[in-house]
Simulated scan of single mutants.
Amino acid sequence: MKKIGVFAMVLLAQITFAQTNRFVYQVTMKPNAEDKNDIKTENAYLDISADKSMFYSENRIKRDSVMRNNFQSGGARGFNRNQMESLRSVINYSVEKNKKDQKTIYKDRIGRDIYTYEEDRPLNWKILSETTKIGEYKVQKAETDFGGRKWTAWFTTDLPYQDGPYKFSGLPGLVVKAEDSTGDYSFDLMKNYKIADFPEMNSFGNVMKVKRTDYVKQQEKYKSDPTAFMNSQRGSGGINPPRNRNGGGNQNPADMRKRMEERVKEEAKNNSNPIELK
Rank of each mutant, 00 (worst) to 15 (best):
Thr152Glu: 11
Phe198Trp: 00
Tyr166Asn: 05
Gly237Ile: 04
Lys177Asp: 08
Ala33Glu: 14
Trp154Val: 00
Lys209Ile: 07
Ser73Thr: 06
Ile105Phe: 01
Ser49Trp: 01
Ser272Ile: 09
Pro31Gly: 11
Glu179Gly: 07
Ser89Ala: 04
Ala76Gly: 06
Lys278Thr: 04
Leu277Ala: 15
Lys133Arg: 10
Asp51Cys: 06
Leu189Pro: 03
Gly248Tyr: 09
Val6Met: 09
Phe155Asp: 08
Asn270Ala: 13
Ser86Asp: 14
Lys2Cys: 10
Arg245Asp: 13
Asp184Asn: 10
Asn270Phe: 08
Asn240Leu: 13
Phe7Leu: 15
Glu200Val: 11
Thr116Ile: 11
Phe17Ser: 15
Lys103Gln: 11
Lys167Met: 07
Tyr117Ile: 03
Phe17Leu: 15
Glu261Cys: 06
Val207Asp: 05
Ala76Tyr: 12
Leu46Lys: 03
Lys52Ala: 08
Thr132Ile: 01
Gln14Asp: 10
Phe229Ala: 00
Asp113Thr: 07
Asp184Arg: 02
Leu277Asn: 12
Asp197Leu: 04
Gly111Glu: 04
Asp64Arg: 02
Ile110Leu: 04
Glu143Asn: 08
Asn252His: 01
Ile195Thr: 08
Met9Arg: 14
Ile48Lys: 06
Asn231Ser: 07
Asn92Phe: 13
Asn240Val: 15
Arg22His: 00
Glu118Lys: 15
Gly170Val: 06
Asn192Glu: 02
Asn273Tyr: 07
Ala13Lys: 02
Ile39Trp: 06
Val216His: 09
Glu85Lys: 14
Thr227Pro: 03
Lys126Met: 11
Asp51Tyr: 12
Asn69Cys: 10
Ala18Phe: 12
Asp197Gln: 09
Asp184Tyr: 05
Lys209Cys: 05
Lys100His: 10
Val175Gln: 05
Phe198Pro: 02
Ser129Trp: 09
Tyr56Ile: 05
Ala178Pro: 00
Phe229Glu: 02
Lys191His: 03
Gly205Pro: 02
Asp145Pro: 07
Phe187Leu: 03
Thr28Cys: 03
Leu12Trp: 11
Gly248Ser: 11
Ile114Ser: 12
Glu261Lys: 15
Val207His: 06
Gln233Met: 07
Arg81Ile: 14
Ala228Phe: 02
Leu174Met: 01
Asp163His: 06
Ile110Lys: 01
Glu42Phe: 00
Phe23Gln: 00
Ala13Asn: 08
Gln251Lys: 14
Lys211Met: 09
Pro31Ala: 11
Lys217Asp: 10
Asp64Thr: 03
Ser49Gly: 08
Ala8Gln: 04
Lys40Met: 12
Thr20Leu: 01
Tyr93Phe: 13
Tyr193Pro: 04
Gly111Cys: 05
Ala18His: 08
Lys2Asp: 13
Asp145Gly: 13
Leu128Gln: 13
Ser86Pro: 07
Asp197His: 04
Phe187Ile: 00
